[in-house]
């Protein structure tokens, strides 16, 4: 057996479980869903196989564009805040002694050990009218404030849920930095700030982009948090897709919305890899 054939066989053996998984559970359902966009809605869900372009023309309706706009705004703000909070955190963790690094990283992923819904519920108990925060403020003679069931609460919930996904790739990028580069910059007379701006930051841009993508993508399509913390008063793309499939039983239009969501994400991924390659 030639070495190259052996390598190919090895690659095949190692890749096939993952590839099978992706093809069967991701690609096939995705193609199915996307093919629905061409057809008409069945009365009780499902699809009537009569070709129509209507699902696409509905997409550019101002109503749905405004929903996409709201989602972009909420997910964008969440990502920005996550970056502003996550970068210093990751930077700090990377400077810690080895032992404490592990502790800090475990602390970052610790929330994932508890069910997502339970953690979101905890925020409701914290923030609602008779909740902990308001009763604490009341004891101080303040409030009550309307902390829940608005877009601020949605952003808070998303930020809380996805911040670890920002910290981890940033940590990986900062940790990998050769400390000698920063030392060299300092030796050559650069201030701490310009070392950060001209050395550290540019070299960690790929990590920044990965972190932003990891936060933006699940925030953009989220439908649980807008419903639970937003009180259902804001609609995001995820809510719309869920409604179309489960309540309105309009699978074709739900699929068209899914297609729009996937398109936005693909554009983001391409942009990310393009910038990362040039960085």
């Amino acid at each position: 057996m030639s070495p190259s054939r052996g390598r190919r066989l090895g690659a095949f053996v190692f890749l096939s479980p993952g590839l099978t998984y992706l093809v069967v559970l991701l690609l096939v359902p995705l193609v199915l869903v996307l093919s629905y966009t061409l057809f008409q809605r069945g009365r009780f869900g499902g699809v009537v196989y009569e070709v129509t372009g209507e699902n696409f023309s509905r997409l550019i309706d101002p109503l749905y564009l405004s929903v996409v706009g709201t989602s972009l705004k909420i997910a964008g703000l969440t990502t920005l805040l996550a970056l502003l909070l996550g970068y210093p955190t990751a930077y700090l963790i990377a400077q810690l002694p080895r032992k404490w690094k592990t502790v800090a990283l475990v602390a970052v992923v610790l929330p994932f050990w508890t069910n997502f819904i339970i953690r979101v519920y905890a925020w409701i108990i914290l923030l609602n009218g008779p909740g902990l925060l308001n009763s604490g403020l009341k004891a101080l003679g303040l409030g009550p404030y309307e902390l829940l069931y608005n877009q601020g609460a949605i952003i808070l919930g998303l930020l809380y849920s996805y911040l670890p996904l920002m910290v981890l790739p940033l940590y990986a990028a900062i940790e990998r930095l050769d400390p000698q580069l920063r030392e060299a910059s300092a030796n050559l007379g650069a201030s701490a700030f310009s070392t950060f701006r001209k050395v550290t930051l540019p070299l960690t841009v790929p990590g920044v982009l990965t972190g932003c993508l990891f936060v933006f993508v699940p925030s953009f399509g989220n439908f649980v948090i807008p419903e639970m913390l937003g009180g259902g008063k804001s609609v995001m793309v995820g809510n719309l897709i869920r409604t179309e499939f489960l309540q309105a039983r309009d699978w074709p239009f739900g699929s068209a919305l899914t297609l729009a969501l996937v398109a936005v994400l693909v554009v983001l991924l391409i942009a990310q890899s393009w910038v990362a390659r040039r960085a």
């Binding site: 359902p29 069945g42 009365r43 869900g45 499902g46 009537v48 819904i117 499939f245 489960l246 699978w251």
Partner: peptide
């Protein structure tokens, strides 16, 4: 509770992908 509803949503979509026979009005 919502969690159950969400689990259901996932299952419904999965079921839909597999066996969604069209039903005419």
């Amino acid at each position: 509770r919502l969690p159950a509803a969400i689990a259901v949503a996932g299952l419904a979509l999965a079921a839909a992908a597999c066996g969604g026979e069209s039903t005419n009005a």
